[in-house]
Amino acid sequence: MAKINVPGHDYTDGAHAEHHGHPDQEEMRTFAFWIYLMTDVILFATLFATYVVLQNNTNGGPTAKELFQMNGIYASTFILLTSSFTSGLALLAMQKGRRLALIGWLGITVLLGTAFITLEVNEFFHMVHEGAAIGTSAFLSSFYTLVGTHGLHVSFGLVWMVVLIFQLAKHGITPVTKRKVNIVSLFWHFLDIVWIFVFTIVYLMGVK
């Protein structure tokens, strides 16, 4: 690299100047994810507001208290919160440079997330079998939309983690995979926070 020395200054050629003149690419991608996350906050806030307004509009159909089976919901909540813990352990393993441990904890997180989705799908099938479909009432329409949207996000996060596990197995811990692990972990914690609101506003308040 060519260097130009001037008394009191130290210049390098365009590559060094460009490095200081433009944000790091990985930082820009992380910033873009934060923007996406803010749009998700708006999305879920809108869905929660809609549910709160429509939760009593049952159209003579079944109510939340009649439909919700809380034992399964408690199990789902415990599983998802545990997956948040294992996701945090994956981050710790990455910071210590332990690739196999990182892959292992991500794999356990995927298994827990899959169990959560399985319980949620079973809940939906049970409710439809009981005659509580998405078109039965405004309450059920808002319920399925809110809880289903969260479930779709969890499913997307699971696919994301599986792809990332393969990338880590192939490329190891690099600046790119580090950024991806940090982002998917943040996304997963965000979904856990959303579920806490779902658990409280939809289920606990629905059966009281």
Rank of each mutant, 00 (worst) to 15 (best):
G151R: 11
G97N: 01
V181W: 01
F31K: 11
I108T: 08
G8C: 08
T77F: 08
E27S: 11
L146E: 02
A138D: 09
D24T: 02
I134F: 07
P7I: 03
T39H: 09
E26P: 00
L43G: 06
V121L: 12
T82H: 13
F125K: 11
H189L: 04
V147D: 11
V6A: 13
E26G: 10
L80M: 05
T174W: 07
G104C: 07
A115Y: 15
P7W: 04
M1P: 13
D24N: 11
N182P: 05
G14H: 12
P175D: 01
T109V: 04
T12E: 07
T12W: 05
D40G: 10
A132R: 07
E26W: 04
L111Q: 12
A15G: 02
S137K: 09
L89V: 08
L186F: 03
A32Y: 05
L191V: 07
G107N: 15
I165C: 04
I173T: 10
T177M: 02
A90E: 09
G151I: 03
V176M: 11
L106A: 13
I165A: 03
T177A: 01
F187L: 03
T46E: 14
E18Q: 12
H22T: 14
A101H: 10
V110M: 04
I35V: 08
T77G: 06
T145C: 15
V147P: 06
K170H: 08
T58C: 09
T109G: 13
D192P: 01
G60D: 01
Y203I: 06
F190N: 02
T200G: 10
E27Y: 09
A64H: 00
F156A: 15
F143H: 13
F124C: 11
I79N: 06
V154W: 00
V128N: 12
T109E: 08
G131K: 11
T109H: 00
L168H: 01
D10V: 09
Q95V: 14
S141E: 14
Y51E: 00
D40R: 15
L81D: 08
Y74D: 15
H22Q: 14
L67D: 00
W34T: 07
H129C: 10
T86N: 01
L81H: 05
T149V: 09
P175H: 01
D10R: 07
G151P: 11
L91T: 08
T114W: 00
V194C: 03
G151C: 11
H171C: 02
L152P: 02
F190W: 13
T30E: 15
G60T: 07
S155W: 07
H171A: 03
T50P: 00
D24Q: 04
L92Q: 04
V162I: 12
M70I: 07
F156L: 14
F116E: 00
F44E: 13
I42T: 13
Q167L: 03
G14A: 09
A169T: 01
L204I: 14
E130A: 07
A169C: 10
F156N: 14
L67Q: 00
